[in-house]
Each structure stands twice: as C-alpha cells, then as structure tokens.
C-alpha cells in the first residue's frame, strides 16, 4: 500500500470568481441550448431571449474570472493553445458564442443561430474538461465532469428561461416540462458523480455532497423544491408563471451551490504518496532489523 507523506490540502488558486464563471457560463450557454431545443432556430421570443441573456451571462463569467487572473490585461493570450489546452478551447467557444449572438442581433440570420448551438455545447463541455484535466485535484480529475457540467448547464439554462420567460417569451409552453426533465437529469448526474469510484481521499472529498448543508442546498432547494413547484404550476394554471419563476430561482440556487462546493470545498490537492519506503519503524529498529 502506498504511504501518504503529505496530506491532501485545499486549493486556493481558484476562488469565488472562478465559480461565477463556471456558473454563469453554463447557465448562459445552457439557456440557448434549451431554447433552440424547444423552439428550433427560428427567431421565436424564447430563442431571442436566450440569444440576449446567454451571451451576456457568458461574458459576465469571462469578466469575473479575468479579474482573478494575475495578469488580466494579457487575457487574449489564452486563445493561443487551442491544440492542447481546454482553457483555450473554452475561451474560443465562449467568444464565438458571444460573437454569433451579436451578429444575429445586428443582422438576424438562421445561419448564426445554427452555428451558435454547437459552439455553446462545446463551451459547456470545455468547462468540464478544464476541470477534468487537473491531475492535481482528485475530485475534478474524473471523466464524468464534462457530462456533469453539461447536465448542470442545461438545467441552469432552463432555470434562467423559467425565471425570465414571464417577461418576454410567449412560446414557452413546453418549458416547465423540459425544466422538470432536466432537473431529473441533473439530479441523476450529481448523484452519479457522488458515487463515482475513486481512492479513499476521493471518496472522502466527494462524500461532502452527502453533508446536510449540501443535501439541503443542492438536492432539496435545487431539485426537489423546483420539481414540486412545477407540479403545482401544472395543476393550478393561475399559479404557473409564478411557480415556474420560483422553480427557476431554486434551480439556479442549487446549481450555484453545487459548483461552489465543487470548486471551493472539493477542490482538494491530492495527497503525495510513495509506493515503497525503506525507512524502518521504531518496532523494526527495536528488534534490530
């Protein structure tokens, strides 16, 4: 068995601003993906809403994480290593999503909207791959992270649209049903992640998702409560808009807490271990070995 020489310790390089980037970026791109999945690529009110909110949220995420970097004015340099770095790919995809949305705003064309969908999907997955390539952090260095981020982005996007739909989209009839389905998908993804196989340290860290505060914030407020509100809205049409908006708040709150926990609490540097250690223990010394 490997001998642990240095204990796991929390990473301190990526803080709340990184969480904001992962949360807003996922919610923004996810909102667009959900909107085009429900309404197609014609400029319906729901797609227009997503094309305004989505890029703004992604841009806000980029700006927040740029502040966290040591040399933010060198930001454009992060586009250089697209052949190897998922952070470069994330930046390209996010930038392209913003640019395509801006082009559609200025000169509406279905081609911009068609191109924006795969770019948004790549952006969301790239955020997951950014983390899953961190070999120093056990809880992130797992292949399920991109899928977890996709599920989280889609349900966050549905949350954004549910919250904003009463203010601007008249074609969101299927949104509550889609939101409910995505809530179930997200719950499944987070549970699957919490059960992902790993070594003792990994299981200890990821076990944090089963703490009372995580269960309450992520699973109860972020999943069960929104589901209950959506069912209520289905049964009482008069309450549907308010219930959907509240469900959206719950979903966004849950995903924010989940990503904050993933980055801040579960971002633990792996222990330093050694396979074979020739030093003798006190008992071996006492016995003259």
């Amino acid at each position: 068995m490997d001998t642990e020489l240095l204990s796991p310790m929390k990473q301190t390089l990526w803080g709340r601003l990184a969480v904001v980037n992962f949360f807003l970026g996922g919610a923004g791109a996810g909102a667009y993906l959900v909107a085009v999945s429900l309404a197609g690529f014609s400029p319906t009110p729901l797609v227009r809403l997503a094309l305004i909110l989505g890029p703004l949220l992604v841009l806000a995420g980029f700006l927040s994480v740029a502040v966290e970097a040591g040399r933010p004015l060198r930001g454009p340099k992060v586009l250089r290593r697209v052949e190897t770095s998922w952070m470069s790919r994330e930046s390209w995809a996010g930038g392209a999503f913003i640019a395509l949305a801006a082009l559609d705003f200025v000169a509406p064309w279905v081609g911009w909207r068609l191109a924006a969908a795969p770019v948004a999907l790549l952006f969301v997955l790239a955020q997951g791959w950014v983390l899953s390539n961190c070999r120093g952090v056990l809880a992130w260095n797992v292949p399920i992270l991109p899928l977890l981020f996709l599920a989280s982005a889609l349900v966050s996007g549905a949350g954004v649209l549910s919250l904003a739909a009463p203010f601007g989209s008249g074609d969101a009839d299927r949104l509550p049903l889609a939101t409910a389905a995505l809530i179930l998908l997200s719950g499944f993804a987070w549970v699957a992640y919490s059960l992902w196989p790993g070594n003792r340290t990994f299981r200890q860290v990821v076990g944090g998702l089963r703490e009372d505060s995580a269960v309450l914030g992520i699973f109860v407020v972020g999943h069960l409560l929104p589901l209950a509100l959506l069912v209520l809205g289905r049964r009482s049409p008069a309450l549907a808009a308010a219930a959907a908006a509240l469900a959206g708040i719950g979903v966004l709150s849950g995903q924010l807490q989940a990503k904050a926990r993933l980055i801040l609490k579960m971002g633990v540097l792996r222990p330093i271990t050694i396979a074979s250690l020739g030093v003798r223990t006190t008992a071996e010394i006492a016995h003259g070995k």
């Binding site: 240095l6 390089l13 990526w14 040591g70 040399r71 930001g75 340099k77 961190c134 070999r135 120093g136």
Partner: peptide, 22 residues
Amino acid sequence: GQCVGCGYCALACPYRARHLIH
C-alpha cells in the same frame, strides 16, 4: 512574459510544485 497567471498549470500539477506570485 507570456503567462496570464490563471493558475491552471498549478492545479494540473499533482506535485504542488508551482507558485503564483500574486
């Protein structure tokens, strides 16, 4: 001269060998 100080490399390193001078 090329580093933006994002900290990604330090989290990718399993040996805790990189240090950001804030």
